[in-house]
Amino acid sequence: MAVCLATSVAAAVVAADAFTLAWTHSIERVRWEEAWRVEHGGLVLERVRVRGHGAGMEPAEGAVLRDGAWVWQPRSRHAVLRLTRSPYTADYEWCEEGGPCVPLAALIASDGDVTELRACPGGSAAP
């Protein structure tokens, strides 16, 4: 499987069956982690972990407090994930299962606007 990433100026393909996106909320300074799976031409949000809550970060109904973080399993399916990347906040982190986390900029440069993620057509085609 593969994930296609695209901005207005660049495109990249990352081989991945699953990955985690992590970031720190710009106001609350709280870490947010979303575990995603690539499945049947889409992205499935498997699990969310939030180390606290605040403005726009309320735990979902059914969330459980586990090891200091609220955790829940939305299992929602998405054709496209749009990430707003600003030069005024820290970048998203891309974490592969069992591997280190790297800034998203290590995979694709930001254009200061939106980066789109989607399952690559056929599992490995370019975006």
Rank of each mutant, 00 (worst) to 15 (best):
W32C: 04
E33W: 02
E33H: 01
E33A: 06
E33N: 02
E34C: 01
E34R: 09
A35C: 12
A35Q: 11
A35M: 04
W36C: 03
W36N: 04
R37G: 10
R37F: 01
R37A: 09
R37C: 05
R37S: 06
V38L: 07
V38S: 00
E39H: 07
H40M: 10
G41A: 03
G41S: 03
G41M: 05
G42E: 09
G42V: 01
L43K: 00
L45W: 00
E46R: 11
R47L: 03
R47I: 00
R47C: 05
V48G: 01
V48Q: 02
V48R: 05
V48L: 03
R49W: 06
R49Y: 03
R49F: 05
V50D: 00
V50T: 14
V50H: 00
R51D: 08
R51H: 14
R51K: 10
R51G: 08
R51W: 12
G52T: 04
H53P: 09
H53T: 13
G54D: 07
G54I: 03
G54H: 07
G54K: 09
G54T: 05
A55D: 09
A55R: 12
A55M: 09
A55C: 08
G56V: 03
G56Q: 07
G56D: 11
G56S: 07
G56H: 06
G56A: 07
G56C: 05
M57P: 08
M57A: 11
M57S: 06
E58F: 11
E58Q: 13
E58R: 08
E58N: 07
P59A: 02
P59K: 02
A60R: 04
A60H: 04
A60W: 03
A60S: 09
A60K: 05
E61L: 06
E61H: 13
E61F: 10
E61I: 02
G62K: 03
G62P: 02
A63F: 01
A63Q: 02
A63M: 06
L65S: 04
L65D: 00
R66F: 11
R66S: 12
R66H: 05
R66I: 14
R66E: 13
R66P: 03
G68H: 13
G68Y: 11
G68N: 15
G68P: 13
A69V: 01
A69M: 02
W70T: 00
V71N: 03
V71L: 06
V71I: 12
V71C: 08
W72Y: 12
Q73M: 04
Q73I: 01
Q73D: 04
P74S: 08
P74A: 12
R75L: 15
R77C: 12
R77G: 09
R77V: 11
H78W: 06
H78E: 05
H78P: 08
H78S: 12
A79N: 15
A79W: 07
V80I: 12
V80W: 12
V80P: 04
V80Q: 14
L81H: 01
L81S: 06
L81W: 00
R82A: 15
R82Y: 10
R82E: 15
L83A: 05
L83N: 14
L83D: 09
L83G: 10
T84S: 08
T84C: 10
T84L: 10
R85K: 03
R85G: 05
R85H: 11
S86M: 14
S86L: 07
S86H: 14
P87W: 13
Y88C: 11
Y88K: 15
Y88I: 11
T89N: 15
T89D: 15
A90C: 08
D91H: 01
D91N: 12
D91I: 06
Y92Q: 00
Y92T: 05
